[in-house]
Design a protein around this nucleic acid. Structure first.
Lengths: 99, 99
DNA sequence: ACAAAATGTTGTAGTAGTACAACAATTCGT
DNA sequence: ACGAATTGTTGTACTACTACAACATTTTGT
């Protein structure tokens, strides 16, 4: 069955995360991160794009890896960009995912 | 199959939690908590005694319910009693679970 | 522009979290 | 001490997380 379809992460119980950003900041590929966390690299992909939520166990591993609290990485409500959080919002354009 | 047997929470990947304490502090029964969290009351039992780990989703619900960070409720390493954490350790006896 | 790396997609399969039910054991109020 | 509430046990079933594989698409380096 497809993953991104319907029965999985429908909008109500979606989980947002900053993994992609944290990876980017550190120049880590998914494989590299997955490797460090001892999980399959596709699992990182699934989690990053919200296809499903990690186990609490994995969330802890990720949290420890980045040295950040779980709440800084995962959230039930969308994250504000870290950049904004640090420098404030100077006239932001509509922040939609383009495609 | 039994739950507390073998294949589940063996000692390596056990997860400790303070749910029982938090419940006790608030005089909440498992059913009451389960009810508030919208889960089966037996699920709370399973989690409390470490039979299995909650999903991240549920961990978030619990965290929000108690108004505490996930890390204050769940940990990969055993918790120190909150009492000690607050008042310090004044000559503690061997803190084993008796029975 | 081309090759290599990174990411996305689809499909299959195993395991672990959760619900639910029925009943045993324990604890608690009066 | 008794009954009620709480907690523990066993068993069944479903769904979601994770692994893995093969291939399509996109991005990146030179």
């Amino acid at each position: 069955m497809e993953l991104g379809s319907n029965s999985d992460a429908r909008n109500g119980d979606r989980l947002y995360n900053r993994i992609a950003v944290l990876r980017a900041e550190r120049g880590l590929s998914r494989s590299a991160l997955a490797n460090a966390l001892q999980v399959n690299y596709q699992t990182i992909g699934y989690i990053e794009r919200g296809d499903f939520k990690p186990s609490l166990e994995l969330a802890f591993r990720i949290s420890e890896y980045f040295g950040l609290p779980i709440e800084a990485i995962f959230s039930r409500t969308p994250f504000r960009p870290l950049s904004e959080e640090v420098y404030g919002n100077h006239n932001a354009p509509p922040s939609g995912d383009s495609k």
